[in-house]
Amino acid sequence: MPLGQASVVREGADVTLVSLAYTVPMALAAAERLAGEGISAEVVDLRCLIPLDMATVLASVGRTSRLVVVEENPYQGGWGGTVVSIVADEGFELLDAPIRRVAAANVPLPFADALEDRVMPTVDKVVETVRKLAAY
Rank of each mutant, 00 (worst) to 15 (best):
I50S: 13
I50P: 00
I50W: 12
L52I: 08
L52G: 02
L52W: 01
L52Q: 04
D53T: 10
D53L: 09
D53E: 07
M54D: 04
M54T: 13
A55K: 15
S60I: 06
S60D: 09
S60Q: 07
G62R: 14
G62A: 09
R63C: 07
T64H: 06
S65A: 13
S65K: 11
S65P: 00
R66P: 01
R66M: 10
L67V: 06
L67K: 02
V68E: 10
V69E: 07
V69C: 02
V70Y: 03
V70R: 05
V70F: 02
E71W: 05
E71S: 08
E71D: 12
E71R: 12
E72Q: 14
E72P: 12
N73C: 06
P74L: 09
Y75D: 10
Y75R: 12
Y75W: 11
Q76E: 12
Q76I: 15
Q76F: 14
Q76S: 15
Q76G: 10
Q76W: 12
Q76K: 10
G77Q: 08
G77L: 08
G78P: 09
G78T: 00
G78Y: 04
W79E: 01
W79V: 05
G80H: 08
G80F: 02
G80Y: 03
G81Q: 03
G81R: 02
G81F: 07
T82H: 05
V83G: 07
V83H: 07
V84E: 11
V84M: 09
V84W: 00
V84L: 06
V84A: 14
V84K: 01
S85F: 01
S85E: 15
S85I: 05
I86K: 09
I86D: 09
V87H: 05
V87W: 03
V87C: 05
A88C: 08
A88R: 11
A88S: 15
A88Y: 03
A88P: 02
D89H: 14
D89P: 02
D89W: 07
D89N: 14
E90C: 08
E90L: 13
G91C: 04
G91W: 03
G91D: 12
G91M: 09
G91N: 11
F92S: 11
E93L: 05
E93P: 00
E93S: 13
L95M: 03
L95S: 06
L95W: 00
L95C: 04
L95R: 02
D96A: 14
A97N: 05
A97C: 09
A97S: 13
A97R: 07
P98Y: 10
P98V: 14
I99N: 08
I99E: 10
R100V: 00
R100E: 09
R100I: 00
R100H: 08
R101K: 10
V102E: 01
A103T: 13
A104H: 08
A104C: 10
A105T: 04
A105K: 15
A105N: 01
A105L: 13
A105Q: 13
N106S: 06
N106C: 11
N106K: 02
V107K: 10
V107T: 13
V107N: 09
V107H: 03
P108I: 01
P108H: 07
L109I: 14
P110F: 06
F111N: 06
A112R: 10
A112D: 11
A112G: 04
A112M: 11
D113I: 13
D113H: 14
D113V: 14
D113M: 14
D113C: 02
